[in-house]
Design a binder for these strands. Structure first.
Lengths: 348, 348
DNA sequence: TTGTAAGCGTTATCAT
DNA sequence: ATGATAACGCTTACAA
């Protein structure tokens, strides 16, 4: 018989379950303890006006006692407006990416958004996993991805996606990129002007990357005796990767007088390897980087590099998200590019 | 009269509002378009078994048409278990912090948690703002904070909080720290052993920091003629900050033969400033860093430093969160410390 | 000042 | 295989 009474409806059922072991306190528990309605608890907790100071104090005390915290889900359900973006970065320990992330975070903060960060650690499976999770938990995703569009589409499932460093012509998603062609042209022109003809490249990716294509194109334009055979790939985008790549390049093309690095870390590795081979920089070998990391000013000799405005890249990505969410077309072409700028220091 | 009919109850009201301009499609809209119940939509979308392949296809098509995406809030409300942690970092562009963040992200990922990252940009107001937001949106917060406990308490409001780099004796919150005393002792012993007696310090914070206290204590132990007057504060924890701090130190204590940096960036700045003053490193001036950044191996001369396992620091912080959430006592004392390790390179 | 009722969008449970 | 119904925890009307 008591069963019948207790199962009347919901409120009494709740009362039954109230002393469950580790259940988090709800607004209802607080209301009951304070002897008020849930609405009154809400008023107290959210600091609304219309409430008696005494009641408020009592409610807050009850909340404290029960260690009550409003459920963000229940709140989100009823108050719209909280925006969460996902950010997927390949490697937080490559100083390039924290800079981009800083740009994203800054722009997001200005809009009151939150950013969930994933470090995919240069693992395509983890990239996809990030998409799977973030497509459920975020309102938009920004990041570095290596999979082709159709795979990404399968995992992002309708959530706005902005790809970092993919040329707009390489994807149907929104993207922000780096104007590799212009950057490489500046760099090669500089090396050529300094008298270099036998220039090698330490690329960062297999296959026809924009940087490599631009490199080969410039080599052709300048009439250099340089082709694919002068390009060595450093799968690891680090100083160590640059060192071992340079070892190989020096073995395969001992005649080179200059080398173009895929990024600054690789270029710094190249300098170190070159010196170990008894070639001083820049006289025995000129080294050119790509990124413009702060680090480049600290090494000896300071690194000549194509500087990229990394924060801007991040901010631009957030702008793309804004457009996407507004139902507008994302920026395409040059508006969605960051153009590198040659910074001449000592290494080339 | 039609009004009466339409306002029957909720379902029809919804039908009315369905063609609202920019309202995001809900499961209900999809159900209606596909001519099935909401439950069936749920089954299709979540890839559950019990559903006719044909129906499923029809539902998914409708979902695609309406650009339907499940609300993460509604989902979170019914499916428990999604954990979001907040991470507050002072400056993503100081290479130290991305390493710590990487440790946090790694440990969080292993547990299936998500991490919302905030860059407080070394601004106490922004730190508090981060707490205000994250205490609502996250299930726990990990981070660097400068405010004293009571202020933090006011802003964190009951959410588990783990402070980074606060000695356990300095806070009643859970914390993970660095064993500054042991680190400094190693460093000072090393410098002393190399014959240095007049040692300066470039500290990073005003007031009695653990590192400074340990420094002064070691100076006393070793009988050095060194006191507070040999400490210069670099408010900016960067190479530039180290350079200007070193300028001052060199002016105030031209007799120093060695300098202890608050961190590696400051130490590198010190090396540069010293050299500009015509003092070679390490012969004219020995320089010791604190952090063990990868960067330290790349500068010339390579930096002798107290290496900190930064990832471990981050992972440890997540472990503390786990304890807190389980209602256990957080680790205290040495278990919540990371002990620096002296790495001798060329600079000292 | 306080309480009642409805609804936010989803999934779980139990029928059918 | 599909649907009805009841939660989930909260806030926003509106009523008292």
């Amino acid at each position: 018989m008591p069963d019948t009474v207790l199962s009347v409806p919901t409120d009494n059922q709740r009362a039954e379950r109230a002393d469950d072991a580790r259940r988090r306190a709800t607004i209802h528990d607080v209301a009951r303890l304070a002897g008020v309605s849930r609405q009154t608890v809400s008023r107290a907790v959210n600091d609304k006006g219309e409430i008696d100071p005494g009641t408020k104090e009592r409610v807050l005390e009850a909340a404290r006692l029960l260690d009550y915290r409003p459920s963000r889900f229940a709140r989100g359900l009823v108050q719209k407006g909280a925006v969460t973006a996902g950010l997927v970065i390949p490697d937080l320990r490559n100083p390039f990416f924290p800079e981009v992330a800083a740009g994203v975070l800054e722009a997001a903060e200005q809009r009151g958004w939150q950013v969930v960060v994933w470090d995919s650690r240069i693992d395509e499976a983890r990239e996809r996993e990030a998409l799977d999770v973030l497509s459920h938990q975020a309102d938009a995703v920004v990041g570095y991805f290596t999979d082709p569009d159709d795979i990404l589409a399968r995992h992002i499932g309708g959530v706005p996606l902005v790809l970092l460093e993919r040329g707009p012509q390489q994807t149907r998603f929104a993207a922000v990129g780096i104007d590799a062609a212009t950057g490489v042209e500046q760099g090669m022109t500089h090396l050529f002007g300094a008298g270099h003809r036998r220039i090698g490249m330490l690329d960062g990716v297999h296959g026809p990357s924009p940087r490599r294509q631009a490199f080969l194109e410039q080599a052709r334009r300048l009439g250099l005796p340089v082709d694919e055979g002068w390009v060595v790939v450093c799968p690891e985008h680090s100083v160590a990767g640059g060192e071992s790549g340079m070892e190989r390049l020096l073995t395969e093309r001992p005649g080179i007088t200059a080398v173009f690095g895929f990024n600054d870390l690789i270029a710094i590795g190249a300098m170190r390897a070159a010196r170990r081979h008894g070639r001083s920089v820049p006289d025995g070998l000129a080294v050119l980087g790509f990124d413009g990391l702060a680090l480049g000013e600290l090494v000896e000799p300071a690194l000549t590099t194509l500087h990229i405005d990394k924060r801007r890249l991040g901010r631009l990505a957030v702008e793309q998200v804004v457009r996407l969410r507004a139902g507008e077309e994302p920026l395409r072409g040059a508006d969605a590019w960051v153009t590198p700028e040659l910074v001449v220091r000592a290494s080339a």
